[in-house]
Design a protein around this nucleic acid. Structure first.
Lengths: 199, 199
DNA sequence: ACCTGAACACCGTTCAAGT
DNA sequence: ACCTGAACACCGTTCAAGT
């Protein structure tokens, strides 16, 4: 049992968050229980409520980290022409969702279970996932308005996300993955072909 | 309190399902509790387990009804050319999701919370939601293989679903809805333009 | 045979009490 | 001031006991 004052509140908050993230990764979202987290960090359940208002608040912070990780991966997938890059970005997104399935799924499974407001700092993290593809659309069709380009980026990105959501159910064979990739590429290429033909 | 033998097991099963569906519609998924259902039909909690193996089983049957309702709505949206019809189908899907938000959301929020197998009869209901748009793609590009057309239908339909999933958070203003519709139409038209140009 | 309802094993969350 | 841990209000699920 951890001694009093052995850690600052900030340290405990980080320990809770780390332990919670590890549980989601290793045992899945359904294993994320206050008592499990407490045992993992050597404190009792009550301690969690010193540093997070409730479990929903904790999950929001887990998801914030996941969004950061996705955004970081996407930043490394910006080579090539705008159209090539958009395709790479979408396949990178699929790749992240596959390799970090439990964390990825928690972001969307736990959205709006409560009717609590989404904080501004969290919305910014969501926006930063959309940002790279928006930037590529801006590059591709600079003559359009910002609203038009954002809508196009959103349509395509949400579309790719929809394919991931409905296709990723564990376990997947390599053939499954190839098929999912082919479906995403099909969506992206046809959309882009239609987009550049019209713009 | 209901008397013994007042209803057959089949009747009780229907009463449980009706009550559960009503609770989801009127109070949302979070209000769906075994004790609430029991109170509503005048039986005790134990009775629910006479007719459903557990809550997951019951929710599967609620979702089955929702999928039937979506398929029924889509069947009424098949007028016009293949391309017009595809656009109408997607907007009909959005319309259903909006008007029956809690039921629609339950289908996807509760997918794979347990790792139970999806029964064959349930998968058929999912397929019947994809069927109308697949049929339109078959009409549009009969020269392609069945697998190619199915992939295209799946890419577009999953894409539209993704826009709905990420855009529908209560409450929406009329302006929000117009924007969501515009995003869907943008996805569909660009995809179809790219598709017919290439096929 | 049908149905009850008390009981069990879990949950998240609180808060008076310890050091 | 920090942390405990017993307690509370809920859950889903079971099953011996009633009629």
């Amino acid at each position: 049992m951890a001694r009093r004052s052995e850690h600052s509140l900030e340290e405990i908050k980080a320990m809770v968050l780390d332990a919670a993230e590890t549980i989601v990764i290793e045992e899945g979202f359904s294993a994320l229980k206050a008592r499990n987290i407490a045992r993992e960090i050597g404190y009792t359940v009550g301690s969690i409520y010193m540093v997070f208002t409730n479990m929903a608040d904790l999950i929001l912070h887990i998801n914030a980290r996941t969004l950061d990780a996705i955004a970081a991966q996407l930043e490394q997938a910006q080579d090539g022409s705008a159209e090539e890059s958009i395709e790479t970005l979408t396949l990178t997104y699929l790749s992240y969702a596959r390799q970090h399935f439990d964390r990825w799924r928690t972001v969307f499974d736990y959205r709006r279970l409560d009717s609590a407001e989404i904080p501004g700092w969290y919305q910014e993290k969501i926006d930063s996932v959309f940002a790279p593809v928006e930037a590529r659309f801006a590059q591709l069709t600079p003559e359009l308005t910002d609203a038009d380009r954002k809508r196009a980026a959103r349509a395509l990105w949400c579309g790719v996300h929809g394919i991931c959501v409905l296709s990723l159910t564990e376990p997947q064979t390599k053939a499954d993955i190839k098929e999912i990739e082919a479906t995403i590429v099909l969506l992206v290429r046809n959309f882009m072909r239609g987009w550049v033909a019209h713009a």
